[in-house]
């Protein structure tokens, strides 16, 4: 189930039942979007925009409507080519998010990918809290064949970050990946700890290209929007890694986040192996949204 080969089939079945653009048609569209976790607000906005266009362009056929809608979401979700510049520059990437979403796994996958591209990679184990977090990341570092710093349970994560940044500079590392502990965005202390880590990187390595990637579980509902907003408050978000997209969830909340917070999805996680990380493809993503 790692590829999404049954994508295209779905879209047409959605629209085929309608011969006119009427309330039922719009309602069905709304249902599909909401079932994909896009949320009530974003869905209403998307459908309103569509209605406007239908009126302005005098569209009569449901099929034309479908194309319009798909194109507009695709365009919205499009990622700039510059989004991946950090892969080629000297950069520090902090990977953040709530508990269990796939941060450590994504760090491992990203390390493997960058290493394959010939980059010199270093991993910092700044989750010193969760049981065996360091062991888990060490296993990923070994799979990716890159060195790792830190990982002692109970150590101060900020000091791990400090050490790692300085090691990265001293060793001439291209990309430093920082794995952080899972934390819920409503935990004040833990969020302040993250702010501090972010500041240390800025201060210790001002010339580095900075990325803060928030990892969101593709299965998550409306709370992911709050997560993105709150994490963005303590560390500027530069992108999303949307994980567990090999399941049946559609990850539609990313659309709401893109429209409200303008944070693009950069990668998707499609499994538990090291190669299961893909650059985000807006066409495939939107097609899958309509696969019912």
């Amino acid at each position: 189930t790692k590829t999404r080969d049954n994508i295209v089939r779905g879209i047409d079945s959605v629209f085929s039942g309608f011969s006119a653009i009427d309330d039922d048609f719009y309602e069905e569209l709304e249902e599909i979007l909401i079932m994909g976790d896009i949320g009530v607000n974003a869905t209403t906005a998307i459908v309103e925009r569509l209605k406007q266009q239908v009126k302005e362009k005098h569209i009569k056929e449901p099929s034309e409507c479908k194309q319009l809608l798909i194109e507009s979401i695709k365009e919205q979700m499009q990622v700039d080519e510059t989004a991946y510049d950090f892969e080629k520059e000297q950069s520090v990437i902090m990977v953040i998010g709530v508990n269990g979403v796939g941060k450590t796994t994504s760090v491992g996958k990203l390390a493997g990918k960058l290493k394959d591209e010939g980059r010199k990679v270093l991993i910092a184990a700044a989750d010193t809290f969760r049981a065996a977090a360091g062991d888990q990341l060490a296993e990923w570092a070994s799979r990716a064949d890159v060195p790792m710093i830190g990982g002692k349970e109970g150590a101060d994560p900020a000091s791990v970050v400090f050490d790692a940044v300085n090691a990265a500079k001293a060793r001439g590392v291209d990309v430093l990946l920082v794995d952080t502990a899972g934390r819920l965005h409503n935990k004040k202390n833990l969020m302040e700890e993250l702010r501090k880590m972010n500041r240390i990187i800025d201060k210790e390595f001002p010339n580095a290209h900075r990325e803060n990637l928030i990892v969101l579980d593709g299965t998550t509902g409306q709370n992911a929007l709050v997560q993105a907003r709150e994490f963005g408050e303590v560390a500027d978000l530069t992108g999303i890694i949307l994980t567990k997209m090999d399941g049946t969830a559609k990850g539609g909340i990313a659309v709401a986040i893109q429209s409200e917070l303008k944070v693009p999805v950069k990668y998707i996680g499609v499994g538990e192996s090291i190669e299961d990380l893909q650059k985000f493809n807006s066409d495939e993503f939107v097609n899958a949204l309509f696969d019912v």
Partner: peptide, 12 residues
């Protein structure tokens, strides 16, 4: 089950 799960919870 993660309490933050969205629409897919029923399928799961």
């Amino acid at each position: 089950v993660d309490a933050m799960t969205g629409q897919d919870a029923v399928n799961v």
